[in-house]
């Protein structure tokens, strides 16, 4: 019989923002007249900049003409974008990053979650606490976090770097454990 990745069974409940969405939906169903304001998840509300829209419209037109149509592109991103990133985000700030060190993707969340693919499962992972849950959950899925301890809210194999009022919410280096 097929076996599942049992690390998934160790994850407590659902993803944080899914839990919140569920609670809000239940509340709204019970109180249909309430005008709920959502300041929870960090999703933007302003439309895309005009310059972006214009560029995308133009690109759509290119895709509709045989001479300018594009199929599979380079997985790492087109040179025009990698060059613009290297120039504006790095060179302009005095940092020398070459375009081939830049990998364009569909999201920082995906990349943060996927980066663990290229590192051994037996590495020790340290996280700031509190932190974006994706860093913790993806390591738990990979089997790097050990077990979740309900009583402490912590994973047994993760090193936590607390950000507290006492330290001005600035974590110190992971201590007491060589990573």
């Amino acid at each position: 019989m097929v076996r599942i990745n049992e690390n998934y069974l160790k994850l407590p409940g659902s993803y944080l923002f899914s839990t919140i969405a569920k609670k809000v939906n239940e509340y709204s169903a019970a109180h249909p007249d309430s005008k709920i304001i959502r300041l929870g998840i960090g999703d933007v509300t302003r439309p895309l900049p005009k310059a972006v829209i214009e560029a995308m419209h133009k690109a759509v037109d290119e895709m509709g003409a045989a001479e300018t149509f594009r199929g599979y592109g380079p997985e790492q991103g087109y040179d025009f974008l990698r060059n613009a990133i290297a120039e504006n985000d790095y060179k302009a700030r005095g940092v020398d990053i070459s375009p081939d060190e830049i990998f364009v993707s569909d999201g920082a969340k995906s990349d943060c979650g996927n980066i663990g693919d290229i590192f051994g499962v037996d590495n020790v992972v340290a996280v700031c606490d509190p932190v974006y849950p994706v860093y913790v959950d993806t390591n738990a899925m990979a089997g790097r976090a050990g077990d979740y301890d309900e009583s402490t809210g912590m994973w047994t194999n993760l090193v936590y770097m607390p950000c507290l009022e006492e330290n001005g919410f600035m974590p110190s280096s992971p201590s007491g454990r060589r990573i």
């Binding site: 133009k58 690109a59 759509v60 290119e62 997985e75």
Partner: peptide
């Protein structure tokens, strides 16, 4: 494991730097 970001979207992202 990844097939790249759509051309249209990358052109949009490039325009962020104009």
């Amino acid at each position: 494991k990844f097939n790249g970001v759509p051309y249209i979207v990358q052109r949009g992202a490039e325009a962020v730097y104009s």
